[in-house]
Design a protein around this nucleic acid. Structure first.
Lengths: 166, 166
DNA sequence: TATTGTTATACTCTATAACTATA
DNA sequence: TATAGTTATAGAGTATAACAATA
């Protein structure tokens, strides 16, 4: 603790402020687009998108939650909403009877498809329209590195719920 | 609308995902630190920090809200909480009797001072510890540019509440 | 005993609309 | 009429803890 710096450089401050400002505006705009286009909250979109990327369009609850939601009950709540709208199904896993498998329905895929173009447009116009492709490269590289760093070194006292029993 | 791209390049996708991942983890960690260290929500911290930066430690409600909160009532709510804790005062403006001036109290400055070191540490360790100082420079430059772009071109249909009557 | 998921509950936060008062 | 701010209210979301069932 003694050797962590107690100040940020002016450049770091600038980067931090710009990061939060861009993040806030982007998040707000994207949430509006998702709500208007598909009646989805950001979290719901993330869950559907995650299922869309999964091999068979399905994941266990626990795996689905990972990184999107920070409490089990929060996922149950959102999964219920998605199920009520017919965008996903929940069924017991044959492998492990404790588990629930969440699967994207065709209706879920439809909503995802409806929402995607506007989502992409928003991200493009807000995040990328103002910078060169070289800058996009740099941004991708730097942020990917930062993300990797974060995954490797979880915030102290974060009490990871169940980390690979390592 | 016809000339907006309907897809992002792989690099753009990578940058976008990394951006949201870093933003989410950073936000979550910072919120926890602020809550633990000073009992502040992120919004409350932003409001206090904004007042701390203001010339006399005071701002009108409307100016204070700008960029932090997206509804007037949301600010009233938060300002009430801060006032109840004695961190700010609210008093009618002498200039314009419609306005309320929000001022940071010494107690408010204390809380800010209490919370700041841990906040800086968190930002440093999460956002900057993993990348070179050259990368910090690039990040600052690129994101500042993006932020400027966003301010200049507000998202269509954003219905800016009252924009400089231009 | 550890893990998966749900439920009950309480709380925080946000937004909309109606309202008051001043410019 | 437009602006500054408040209030009432309703809704969405989240977290904690207690719980049941399976491994």
């Amino acid at each position: 603790m003694e050797n962590t710096p107690t100040a940020l450089t002016p450049t770091q401050l600038q980067a931090y402020f710009a990061f939060t400002e861009v993040g806030s505006l982007l998040r707000h705009a994207v949430e509006k687009q998702l709500r208007d286009a598909g009646g989805l909250s950001y979290v719901q979109f993330q869950l559907l998108a995650r299922l869309g990327d999964a091999p068979d369009g399905q994941l266990r609850m626990t795996d689905l939650a990972d990184g999107v939601v920070y409490s089990r009950s929060g996922l149950t709540y959102q999964a219920q909403l998605l199920e009520q709208r017919g965008l996903v199904t929940r069924s017991p896993s044959p492998d492990d009877e404790r588990s629930i498998v969440v699967a994207l329905t065709s209706g879920g895929r439809d909503v995802l498809a409806t929402v995607f173009p506007g989502h992409i447009d928003a991200v493009h116009s807000l995040l990328f329209a103002g910078i060169s492709s070289k800058d996009v490269d740099d941004l991708a590289r730097i942020l990917a590195q930062t993300a990797a760093h974060l995954r490797a070194a979880p915030p102290r006292s974060a009490a990871p719920r169940s980390r690979k029993k390592a």
